[in-house]
Measured scan of single mutants.
Amino acid sequence: ILEEAISVVMSGKMSVSKAQSIYGIPHSTLEYKVKERLGTLK
């Protein structure tokens, strides 16, 4: 489920907030994982 949510957000089909409510994943977790994948994590 997490992988799917990350893919959807990264493809631009859904915002982090929308994915959070649909997949039930905490906003901070989703945002962290997306940034980690994009290489923008500081």
Rank of each mutant, 00 (worst) to 15 (best):
K35C: 07
L30P: 03
V8H: 09
Y23M: 04
V9E: 01
E3R: 02
V34T: 06
Y32H: 14
Y23F: 10
I6M: 04
M14Q: 05
E3W: 02
T29P: 04
I1L: 13
V16D: 04
S7Y: 05
T40M: 12
E3L: 01
K18R: 10
S17D: 14
I25V: 12
E3T: 01
L38W: 07
E36W: 00
S17V: 10
V9S: 01
V16G: 04
R37W: 00
A5Q: 00
L2P: 07
K35W: 05
L2V: 08
V34W: 03
K42P: 15
K13C: 03
M14R: 02
L41K: 13
V34E: 05
S7W: 07
T29H: 10
Q20R: 07
S17E: 15
S21I: 09
L30R: 01
Y23L: 00
G12W: 00
S7T: 12
T29D: 12
E4V: 05
P26N: 10
K35Q: 14
S7G: 11
K33R: 11
S15F: 00
M14K: 05
L41E: 15
I25R: 01
A19I: 00
I1M: 13
M14Y: 06
T40F: 04
V9A: 00
K42R: 14
Y23A: 05
E3D: 08
K42F: 07
V8R: 10
V9M: 02
E36L: 03
P26I: 00
K13H: 08
L41Q: 14
G39Y: 08
L2C: 05
K13E: 12
R37M: 02
K18W: 01
S15E: 08
I22K: 11
K42C: 12
E4R: 05
V8G: 09
H27F: 08
V34L: 11
G12T: 01
S21A: 15
S28Q: 13
V34M: 09
I25H: 01
L38D: 13
P26T: 05
Y23H: 05
L30N: 03
K13N: 11
T29W: 07
K42M: 11
A5C: 00
A5E: 05
S15L: 00
E4G: 03
S15M: 01
L41Y: 13
T40W: 08
T40I: 08
I25K: 03
L38N: 11
V9F: 00
S11K: 09
K18Y: 04
V16T: 09
T29L: 13
S7N: 13
I25N: 01
K33L: 11
I22Q: 14
E4I: 04
M10Q: 07
G12E: 06
E36K: 04
S21F: 08
Y23Q: 03
V34H: 05
S11V: 04
S28H: 11
R37E: 09
K35P: 09
I25S: 03
E4P: 00
G39D: 12
L30C: 02
H27A: 15
M14N: 02
M14F: 05
E4S: 06
Y32G: 15
G12D: 06
M14I: 08
S17L: 11
K42T: 14
L2Y: 08
I1T: 14
K42E: 15
A19V: 05
M10E: 07
K33M: 09
R37S: 07
K33A: 14
Q20P: 01
I22E: 13
K18M: 09
K13L: 07
K35G: 11
S17G: 13
L30V: 05
G12K: 07
E31N: 08
S7L: 09
M14D: 02
E3Q: 03
P26K: 10
E4F: 02
K35V: 05
M10A: 09
L30A: 04
S15C: 06
S15K: 03
Y32S: 15
M14C: 08
L30F: 02
L2W: 07
E36Q: 11
I22R: 10
R37G: 07
S15H: 03
G39C: 11
I6G: 04
E4K: 08
G12A: 03
R37L: 01
Y23N: 07
S21L: 10
S15G: 07
V8M: 15
L2D: 05
S17P: 07
I1F: 11
A19G: 03
H27K: 15
K18Q: 15
A5V: 06
L41N: 09
T29G: 04
E31L: 08
S7Q: 13
E4T: 08
E4M: 03
